[in-house]
Computed example of a mutant assay.
Amino acid sequence: MDGSDLRIALLSGNYNCVRDGANGALNRLVATLLDRGAQVRVYSPTVRHPAFPPTGDLVSLPSVAFPGRSEYRVPLGLGPGARRDLARFAPNIVHVSSPDPAAHRAVSWGRRRGIPVLASVHTRFDTYPRYYGLGAIEPLVTAGLRRFYRRCDALLAPSESFAQVLRAQRMNYDIAIWSRGVDRTRFNPGRRDLAWRQGLGIGPDEVVVGFLGRLVMEKGLDVFAAAIDELRARDVAHRVLVVGEGPAREWLEDRLPDAVFAGFQAGDDLGRAVASMDVLFNPSTTETFGNVTLEAMACALPVVAAVSTGSTSLVENGISGRLVPPGGTRQFAEALRRYITDPEIRRLHGEAGELRARDFAWDRINGAVVDTYLRLLRRRPHARAPARPASPAR
């Protein structure tokens, strides 16, 4: 068997409604699968004005806006049309990428037919309640996730550190690694642009502490702001550059009135923005991999990050950045101070990170997913029977 034998039904909560690391990875995966001769059908909510064109055939699922985060959609289920389309498509692999109602129905659909079901885990949903004053329900969320993931034949985790967390939580015991790649033509030190910085009011000799990502509280914005306050209290000269958009932007602008907000950046503009920073500060503990960390490393930036899943698989403490216990405001500030005041250590750690980033090529990384699909099919030979040709997506 090879990739051309695969017929994959991919369930996504927001395949192209918004642009984030998870959706980018899924679209790149579909592109790789199609290049290898696989047939893929994606089932996901759709919106009138998506963030970007979808890769591959996309079948719309009924959905509602997520409460308080209307840019995201919650698929309510498969619906009769999607079920008919699934039956015609006749997949030999079901791949679910978020624990939503449609994914639950798809897991049941696959299990009833003896079709292998794979789940990729993109987000630490179990940690979200603590950022919204609901920490008491975290055990319930974890238990619900466990029930969902244990009904799957295998999981894909984006880093070994996160896979260890999933094993400790007894989510599943067949966990493969689907890492993330970085586009080196877009993210590299040569993208640094001092004229662009100057256009934002940042001088050529000012040291820039950067934040990159969606502006939502679960990204650790409160810790970020507190650490910057600590730097100011120590009279450490620096500038803050925030790249990204989100519902918490107004909150962060109020907390850091002197910061420069560059807004949403994409494509080559994003590579320029990252390379024009001097150090990336990523205090988030909800990352499963840390795409932004890898992108910064590819641009030869040292990274100050929380000790958490994802970051510990990318940043080598004291070599390519600094890892600080979550919420350690003063420790974050001290790590940032060292990079701000010592250009030589900033350069050395940035170069070490750039060297590490060379290991993350998308084709090889997505090939690991193909290998996992084929392994699951070999365990269920009856799932490999020839299927009818796919009908056009509707």
Rank of each mutant, 00 (worst) to 15 (best):
S4D: 05
G13A: 07
N16W: 03
L34D: 00
D35G: 07
D35N: 03
G37D: 00
T46A: 11
R48G: 09
T55Q: 09
S63R: 00
A65C: 13
P67S: 13
E71A: 15
Y72A: 09
P75T: 01
P75N: 05
G77V: 10
G77S: 08
S98W: 12
P101G: 04
H104S: 11
H104V: 13
V107P: 09
V107L: 07
W109K: 02
G110W: 05
G114S: 13
S120R: 04
H122W: 10
Y132V: 15
Y132N: 06
G133I: 13
I137S: 10
E138A: 14
E138C: 08
L140I: 05
T142A: 11
F148E: 02
R151E: 09
A154C: 13
A157D: 10
Q169W: 08
I175A: 07
V182F: 05
D183F: 08
T185R: 11
R192P: 12
L194V: 15
A195F: 02
M217R: 15
G220M: 07
G220L: 11
F224P: 14
E230R: 14
R232G: 14
R239Q: 14
G244P: 02
D254E: 07
D258C: 02
A262C: 12
A266N: 12
D268H: 07
R272Y: 05
N282I: 08
T286I: 05
G290D: 00
V292S: 14
M297R: 04
P302T: 15
V307Y: 07
V307A: 00
S311N: 07
V315N: 02
E316N: 14
E316P: 13
N317V: 02
V324K: 12
G328K: 08
F332N: 05
R338T: 05
L348S: 11
L348R: 15
E354S: 12
N366L: 04
G367N: 06
Y373D: 00
H382M: 13
A385F: 13
A387P: 04
R394K: 06
